[in-house]
Simulated scan of single mutants.
Amino acid sequence: MPKRPDPLFEIPRPAAFTEPVLDLLGGVARPRSLSGEEAIAALARIEESARQGDPEAEAELARRLLTDAPNARSNRRALILLRKSAQQHSPAGLHLLALLHLRGQGMKKNAAEGVRLLEEAAYMGNASAQTDLAKAFALGIGVPKDEGKALYWLRLAAAQGDNLSALRTGRMYRDGDGTLQNEGEAQKWLEQAARSGIPEAQFELAELLRRRDISARDIPGARRWMREAAFSGIVEAQLRIGIASWSGAGGAVDQREAVRWLCRAAEGGSIKAASMLAGFLMTGNGLPMSLPRAWTLFCWAAERGDGGAQATARIIEKQLTDEERADGEKLLREASPRAMLESLIPRSDR
């Protein structure tokens, strides 16, 4: 039985077939997905160009063969196409052929040859090859491990607009991997990735701006990027922006906004957010006071390892009626975190 290809180096999926359409109102061209018939016609044009020996068309056709339900037959045809494309020094063809060597797909695995082909494509300016070459140096695959060279290739890819490479570059400068720590460079690359909409970059940029030395700290900027990460669904960011809204760090105090974000974080599983909301319910600060609701939330946090919540729940429990305790226990048994929060803190209170 043939071995499965090594998944460490993935074949990049081809872009969807689109065509630019002028937006008469906005005055800019926007992509429009092609219909089924139009997509088939576009693929036929790629096939014809590949038959005529166009190296870029050969590489593109091979990419589609390798990613659209690949099998032994399509692998063999893709390999033939990529060898022809690589012989004509197509960066895309060299990159994809390198990946087949690194993955062991359609051929015997050969990491050294894969890295050689990656280097050739990377020196020709192929950003995807630069990113994969950085991975090879970072992990020591086919070459000695060298984080400095990994950073070099990541920077080149990031400078060409590869935003995931920008995220990794920012992390390396932040942590001092393969280079001296440099918060200015870290901020530059993390900001590029954050502006492209990568949630992890938005969160990590916010953390960098919040934690750096006092003279360079940017609390309003940190709050702005943390808010972007929170909107992107990062639970820890939702917790942090809730705390910032409550305390006024980096902006105005907004208790309702704080409760809203803490609820979202708690629905996502944040124990700390649930404990804070329970505290609001216990004291009547930020939410209408309700010991039964506070007890239920403290119990939920305690079940997930919050020792302080467990101690507080025991104190409150002595003040509850049997009916109030039974209602809370039913919620804890039967409701999802989202349903429980909806019941304990209605939308009108957020």
Rank of each mutant, 00 (worst) to 15 (best):
residue 1 M to N: 03
residue 6 D to S: 04
residue 7 P to G: 04
residue 8 L to W: 14
residue 8 L to D: 08
residue 14 P to D: 01
residue 22 L to E: 12
residue 23 D to W: 04
residue 25 L to H: 09
residue 27 G to M: 10
residue 30 R to S: 08
residue 35 S to R: 09
residue 38 E to N: 00
residue 43 L to G: 00
residue 58 E to F: 06
residue 63 R to M: 10
residue 71 N to R: 09
residue 81 L to S: 02
residue 87 Q to R: 00
residue 94 L to T: 00
residue 99 L to M: 06
residue 102 L to Q: 02
residue 113 E to F: 01
residue 123 Y to N: 01
residue 131 T to R: 13
residue 141 I to W: 04
residue 145 K to I: 07
residue 146 D to R: 11
residue 147 E to Q: 12
residue 150 A to W: 12
residue 150 A to N: 12
residue 153 W to Y: 11
residue 154 L to H: 08
residue 157 A to M: 10
residue 158 A to Q: 02
residue 165 S to H: 06
residue 173 Y to F: 15
residue 174 R to H: 14
residue 194 A to C: 06
residue 199 P to I: 12
residue 201 A to K: 14
residue 204 E to D: 06
residue 205 L to C: 06
residue 205 L to Y: 05
residue 206 A to Q: 07
residue 208 L to Y: 11
residue 211 R to M: 08
residue 212 R to T: 14
residue 216 A to M: 12
residue 218 D to N: 15
residue 219 I to R: 05
residue 222 A to Q: 03
residue 222 A to V: 03
residue 225 W to V: 02
residue 239 L to F: 15
residue 240 R to Q: 13
residue 242 G to W: 09
residue 246 W to A: 13
residue 247 S to P: 00
residue 258 A to C: 11
residue 265 A to T: 04
residue 266 A to T: 04
residue 266 A to D: 03
residue 269 G to T: 06
residue 271 I to Y: 04
residue 271 I to H: 01
residue 275 S to G: 07
residue 275 S to A: 15
residue 280 F to C: 14
residue 281 L to Y: 08
residue 292 P to A: 03
residue 298 F to W: 13
residue 300 W to E: 08
residue 303 E to M: 13
residue 309 A to Q: 09
residue 310 Q to T: 02
residue 312 T to K: 13
residue 317 E to A: 13
residue 326 A to G: 01
residue 330 K to H: 13
residue 331 L to R: 05
residue 332 L to R: 01
residue 334 E to H: 06
residue 335 A to E: 10
residue 335 A to V: 01
residue 341 L to H: 12
residue 342 E to N: 14
residue 344 L to P: 01
